[in-house]
Nucleic acid binder design. Structure first.
Lengths: 150, 150
DNA sequence: ACAGCGCTACGACAGATGTAGGAGAATCGG
DNA sequence: CCGATTCTCCTACATCTGTCGTAGCGCTGT
């Protein structure tokens, strides 16, 4: 049998997004645990457990396991002990994590924010007021940059 | 030992995002395969393999496996045979898949598009022209809706 | 007609993820 | 000082993901 490909041998463009050094990729669950920690600022396994959303009630040891894995990934670190319990704290901000998520998504979208935005608008997730707000933000940012730099 | 939690017993808000019925969650690799298929419109395993980005050269059977899994997830379906080879076609559009991704991300962001946008602006992924463009799009959409509906 | 090559079906396997149990050490309340 | 409680540390295990290999069947060209 002849290879079915015959003519279509055009290698595709190599869209590629560097994992930017030490940036960890958090899983869904890990993200929820981090979220709890971000809310707390710092906390014990049990505190994290209680801060988990209602639709994610996990066993104590499950949370503990996730926290341990997060430690391995250096996403959280122990800051002190209370009794014999470790108190953990996030190793980076929610913002940083979000940035990572967005950049991943943008990668999938081919690197440009446009299509993403278009979707948002189409889905009505983005209205007139939002755009206004953004313009303000953009202007302010430009101003700030001019002030600090140059 | 006393539970370390003592006072902090406020259950967190139950942010939750329904998986919207039959919507499948595609993995990274599956997404790349789908992307190849979207480019092709429809194609054989081998054609898909050749369309994969240069940084993702996989063995023939690897691609085949992914395609099989996508079939199980009903993300692709066989449309015909050429020789003894199956020709596959996506079961939904790239757009639909993207919508799903975005909605997932928004879920993580608490449901609002604002923070997402803010990030984009901060990272300079979104400029003046983009916002202009979006406003146009938004206006057009409003017009269209008015025309079709009401 | 048949050798050979491509395709399919299936199985395998390591590493990542989600979820939890058990043993035993540390601590707290009395 | 002692028992009950709560941690910690490890282990376990089912799934999901990423990646292939093998066996065998069906075309196809000569």
């Amino acid at each position: 049998m002849r290879k079915i490909t015959s003519a279509a041998l055009g290698r595709a463009r190599g869209r590629e997004v560097m994992p930017s050094k030490g940036a960890v990729r958090l899983t869904r669950l890990e993200l929820e645990v981090m979220d709890a920690l971000w809310q707390l600022g710092a906390g014990s396994v049990r505190e994290i457990m209680y801060r988990l959303p209602a639709n994610r009630q996990l066993a104590y040891t499950t949370v503990q396991t996730i926290v341990r894995r997060l430690e391995e990934k250096e996403a959280v670190r122990q800051v002190k002990k209370v009794g014999n319990a470790h108190i953990f704290e996030p190793a980076f901000t929610r913002k940083a994590a979000h940035r990572r998520l967005i950049s991943d998504l943008l990668g999938i979208f081919g690197g440009s924010a446009r299509p993403l935005m278009a979707h948002l608008v189409e889905d009505g997730k983005l209205g007139q007021e939002d755009l206004k707000e953004l313009e303000t933000l953009l202007a302010e940012q430009a101003r700030k940059k001019r002030t600090s730099k140059s």
